[in-house]
Design a protein around this nucleic acid. Structure first.
Lengths: 169, 169
DNA sequence: CGACACATGTAACACGTTACATGATTTG
DNA sequence: CAAATCATGTAACGTGTTACATGTGTCG
């Protein structure tokens, strides 16, 4: 539901057309999760279906603009005033992978090591991206989020290794 | 792709039937992400479609057992030897929400505060669950993963607040 | 007997995602 | 002129998810 609400939020600042929404979405959230332009249109169609946006004809250049509805505004308000719960979050593939490795006979140390290398590289990439960027506040916060998460992942991997070594002694 | 690979990994330790797979999956990953039994069957059907498992008739009690194929075993091997990349991960709803709040005129401090309360509660719940549980190693590691993540989230929220306060001064 | 756990399955939908088709306009 | 950017849209698929239908066995 992130794209849905993200686009809806952008529309709450005024009517937009599809292509513009992608540009602004990426300008806000950064290059980490590129947004396929096709998805903007499919999402707009679904938002329209649900009565959260309304097609507002075309502008002077013939672009198809969309306007947020009252119901859409309420939905945005609800989104911002409701926290993201644990149950809302998708299953964590890495956690499941390590758990499965531990439960079945797979060599956990190997899996951990492989992941650690990848996460470390990602972390370097992210710090580099942060130095390079410096654009907007929103983008920087998203980058920071990824950095904080990657660091936590490294710590968790260390923890997993320590615990599983201790267990197999 | 977590459920898919999780079930496949369980099947790599020997043939199972659907209901048993759910029990073992939840025993391994814990109660955090309950697995609807219906989903086991839909996933098994898709695994069969892709040639990763094969229906192995019924056991003595008439239960429909499934067996992993050679291709399935290879897939499991690939899963464990390939790290989870940044691009594999789903969009982070919280990061997008905060970024959107910053970019549009929404009161970020409010959003942060609401989330912080929820995350703190989740963290308490998790520490309680950890004391209560103590079952298997895999389950404990999953719980630890959630704890590490929640802590990182708290730190990130603090960071967001500090940065956005600084910005609006 | 009634409730509950065991057990299997299907239908339908949501969202995310990509591939493709199409055309206008701008710019080197 | 050719390539790139701007711009819109559709078709199709994948996974995750839930709701529903159905039936057996067991235990208080």
């Amino acid at each position: 539901m992130s794209i849905r609400h993200g686009l809806l939020t952008l529309l709450s600042s005024g009517p937009r057309y599809g292509y513009q929404l992608r540009v602004e979405f990426e300008a806000t959230t950064g290059a980490t999760w590129p947004l396929n332009i096709g998805q903007v249109y499919t999402t707009l169609a679904r938002l329209e279906r649900d009565g959260l946006v309304a097609p507002g004809g075309a502008d002077e250049q013939g672009r198809a603009i969309y306007t947020i509805t009252e119901a859409g505004r309420e939905e945005v308000g609800r989104w911002f005033s409701t926290p993201v719960a644990q149950t809302d979050r998708p299953r964590d593939e890495l956690a499941i992978k390590i758990a499965m490795a531990v439960a079945s006979g797979v060599d956990v140390a190997d899996v951990i090591q492989t992941q650690r290398v990848a996460t470390m590289r990602a972390l370097q990439e992210l710090t580099r991206a942060k130095r390079a960027a410096g654009d907007g506040l929103a983008q920087r916060l998203v980058l920071d989020s990824l950095i904080f998460k990657a660091e936590a992942e490294q710590r968790w991997l260390d923890h997993c290794e320590a615990v599983s070594k201790e267990k197999s002694r």
